[in-house]
Amino acid sequence: MDNFMRQGPLNDLGLVGRTSEDNAQVTMGDGGRPMVVNLRLDPANKAAMKAVATLVGVDLPQKANYFVEGKETEVHWLAPDEWMIVSQNMEGNELVSKLDEALDGVHHSAVNVSDNFAVITVEGEKARALLQKAIPLDLHPREFHTGMSTQTHAAKTNVILQQVSDAPFYKLYVRRSFSQYLWAWLESGSIGFGLAISS
C-alpha cells in the first residue's frame, strides 16, 4: 500500500504552508497518524491482563484518567474495562491479530481505530489558557497534569485529552470528522495569544 495515498484529516488545512505569528505564546500542530487500538477487557482476568502487558510492553493502567508508557506504546485508561493503545511504530491490524490470538477464548474486543482520530497538539505558555476556553475540566496542574489522559469535551466535540509534558504540551485525540471544526475553534480562541504552527 503506497503511503502517498494516505491523507490525514488535517491535511486539508494546509498547515505545512502556514506561517507562525511573532511572539507566539501557543503552538498548535498536527499530531500525525499514530496507531490507535481500542481494547475492551475485564481487568479482573489477571492472566489476560498479563498477556496484553507482554504484547504492548507495559501493564495496562488501572488508575482512572492516567496513561502509561511502554517501550513502543502508550496505554491510556479510558474506562475500568477500556484502554486506548497508541504507538508510533506498530501497525493496528497486526496488533489486533496478536491480541486476538493472545486472548483467544477470553471475552475481549480489540479494534483498530487508527483512522478514527485526528491528533491536535497544543503547547506553550498559553496552551492551558486556550484549552480552558474549550474544556470544562479544571486543567490547573493540581487537578490535571503530565501523565494524565481523560475523555472530555472541547467546544462541541468529544476529545481524549492527554498532557504529555509540563511545558505544557497537550494532545487532543478527536474524531476525525470533527477535527477541522476543533482546529478552527481553537485557532479562533487563540486570538491575542499569537499562534505558531508546529511542523
Binding site: 491523507q7 486539508d12 467546544a155 476525525r176 470528522s177 470533527f178 471544526y181 478552527a184 475553534w185 479562533s188
Partner: peptide, 19 residues
C-alpha cells in the same frame, strides 16, 4: 456566545472525500 459563532456555532463534520 464567546467563540461559538458563525461557522463555529455548531461542528460541521466532514468525510475524507469532502475536499
Amino acid at each position: 456566545a464567546g467563540r461559538d459563532i458563525d461557522d463555529l456555532l455548531d461542528p460541521a463534520r466532514t468525510t475524507p472525500m469532502h475536499s
